[in-house]
Design a protein around this nucleic acid. Structure first.
Lengths: 110, 110
DNA sequence: AGATTCCCATCGACACTCTATAGGAGGGCG
DNA sequence: CGCCCTCCTATAGAGTGTCGATGGGAATCT
């Protein structure tokens, strides 16, 4: 209760991750923080949701990863978009547009 | 593949059902058709998704039902919103507004 | 050394949607 | 009357995805 705003919509997490990685590669927790930032705190992605999603998306060929060093000198796995990932970002962005438009129309109907 | 547009987002079905019943009571298949109509075909709710949702929502106290006759002389169970259901509609509408705004902002960010 | 922070990872529970399947009941038709 | 089609409700089984809890390694600080 009083959790305010966790609980993502199904399929939305993928879109947020893809978008977070559109500009630059990032490591897991960085992605999480970035999503929280660009949604102004509306979405808080917990590790238990994030990492399974990252693995799934890498498996799907949308992301590629490599180990590196974080800005705090910690070992970190950096993820970046593949070409397929960029296509997927476009696809899902467009899908989101269709869906949100449909719902908006449904809600404004008398 | 090529399914175009089924697959609702988690939590969205409830909102669509509540909205469909906002004006008048309807029976199950009528709700399904109405949702398809007000979303201009973007969402197609199959019976296997609809009925479990209706039962769950009635259990939650948002809907009430009674048997009657459909416009085609068939036995049909009519659902209507309870007061709690109307409150829930407001709550979920507002929740949707927050979420869709957050995602829209996230997507338009450079 | 101990505590804290940063980072990755997995597991079990839980919720929701889909596909497929089933069956009763009314209406049309030969 | 017997058959088939449509309307309407319903359930079971599978798949998927998110969450909460938990754990552990490594760098930094005190």
């Amino acid at each position: 209760m009083a959790q305010e705003s966790t609980n993502l919509l199904q399929g939305t997490l993928d879109l947020m991750i893809l978008k977070a990685l559109a500009l630059e590669q990032m490591h897991g927790l960085g992605i999480s923080r970035r999503i929280e930032q660009i949604t102004k705190g509306t979405f808080q992605v917990k590790p238990g949701s994030l990492f399974p999603a990252l693995h799934r998306m890498e498996e799907a060929g949308w992301l590629a990863s490599s180990w590196g060093e974080s800005e705090n000198n910690r070992k970190a796995k950096y993820y970046r978009l593949t070409k397929a990932g960029r296509r997927q970002l476009e696809t899902e962005t467009e899908r989101w547009g269709r869906i949100s438009l449909a719902i908006a129309r449904a809600l404004e109907a008398s």
